[in-house]
Amino acid sequence: MADNSVSPIPVAPVGLSSRAQRFVEVDGIRVPRQDIRRHRDAWIEHRIPAAEIDRAADFQDRWGGLALPPAPFYEGGPRILDADCPEGSAAEGWSFPAGNCRVSMAYGFMIGPEGAFGIGAHRWTPLHASTDGWVESLALAAHATRWAKAVTRIKGKAVESLDLGGYELVPEVQGVTDTWWRGKDSLIALYRGEAVGLDAPQCLEAHVYEGLDEWGLHGG
C-alpha cells in the first residue's frame, strides 16, 4: 500500500549540507512510497532477519519516494530511491535494492551490509559510504556544472594520469570507490565504480570542472 500522505515537494533529510538540502528541495520530487513494513511477517517467514527488514524500512522512511535529477554517470542512477526485500546471507552480509534503474543495465543500485550506497553486479561495489554521500555527489555535480567555465570528460586509462597533487578530498560525498577532489579553482569527480564492479577498466571516467570561483568551489 502506498503512502499517499507525502507532499510532492520534498523536505531534505536532516544532516545534509546546505547545498544538498537546496538540491533535494528545489530539484527533487517526492512521490508516494511503498510501505514495506507490511511485508515484514512474510519476509521473516522467508528467514530474512528482522534487523535487515528494519534497516530497509529506515531507508524507506528517510529516502523512499525521492526522485532526483539524473546523475552524470551510471546511466543517471536510480529513477526513484525506493527500498525492497533484503537479500543475502549471514556469511556474505545482507543488502537491499535502493531503487529501479532508469534504463536496462548490467547492475542494480544497492544498499550494502554496512549502509554504503553502491552497485551490485557479479560483485558488490560500494560507491559512497551512505546514501547521504550519493545525494551529496549529485548535488555537487549539479552545482559544479552550473558554475564551471569548462567541463572536460576523461575516459579509460587517461584517468590514471590525472595529477591530484594540490587537491583535497571533498569529505561530504563520503567517497569509497567514487571520489570528489577540490583544487584551487577546479573540482574533479572520479567515477571508478563500473570499472571495479564490472572488471572493465575502460569504464573509468573523470569529470573535470574548471574556472570555478570561491562560490563555485564550495557553495554550501
Rank of each mutant, 00 (worst) to 15 (best):
M1W: 13
D3F: 03
N4M: 13
S7A: 14
P10S: 09
V11N: 13
G15L: 06
S18N: 11
R19A: 01
A20S: 10
Q21A: 14
F23E: 02
E25F: 11
D27F: 08
D27P: 02
G28H: 03
I29R: 13
P32W: 09
P32L: 09
R33V: 05
R33A: 12
R33W: 07
I36K: 01
I36S: 05
I36A: 00
R40K: 15
D41E: 15
D41Q: 15
A42L: 14
W43R: 03
I44G: 02
R47K: 14
R47I: 06
R47F: 13
P49S: 10
A50H: 10
A51G: 00
I53D: 03
A57L: 05
D58Y: 02
F59D: 10
Q60D: 15
A71G: 14
A71E: 10
P72Q: 08
P72L: 05
G76P: 02
G77P: 06
P78I: 01
P78F: 07
R79S: 06
L81I: 04
D82M: 07
D84M: 10
P86L: 00
E87Y: 11
E87S: 11
W94L: 02
S95A: 13
P97Y: 10
P97V: 03
A98K: 03
A98M: 04
N100L: 12
S104I: 08
M105T: 11
M105R: 09
Y107P: 02
M110G: 01
I111H: 03
E114L: 12
E114N: 15
E114T: 13
E114G: 09
G115S: 08
F117M: 12
F117V: 03
A121R: 08
A121P: 04
H122W: 14
R123I: 14
W124Y: 15
W124I: 08
H128I: 06
A129T: 05
A129Q: 13
S130V: 09
T131L: 13
W134H: 12
V135L: 10
E136S: 09
S137C: 07
L138I: 05
A141G: 03
A141V: 03
A141S: 14
A141Y: 06
A142G: 12
H143V: 10
H143L: 06
A144D: 01
A144V: 05
T145Q: 15
R146Y: 04
A148R: 03
A150I: 02
A150K: 11
V151G: 07
K157P: 14
K157A: 15
E160K: 15
S161K: 07
L162R: 00
L162H: 04
D163W: 11
D163L: 09
D163E: 13
G166E: 05
E168P: 00
P171F: 07
P171R: 12
P171M: 06
E172A: 14
V173L: 10
G175Y: 00
V176F: 04
V176Y: 01
T177P: 09
T179W: 00
W181N: 07
W181L: 08
G183C: 09
G183S: 12
S186H: 04
L187S: 04
L190K: 12
G193T: 02
E194Q: 04
G197F: 06
L198W: 01
P201G: 09
C203T: 07
E205N: 05
A206N: 05
H207D: 05
Y209E: 07
E210M: 01
L212N: 07
L212H: 02
E214G: 02
G216S: 12
L217A: 05
H218C: 07
G219R: 09
G220L: 02
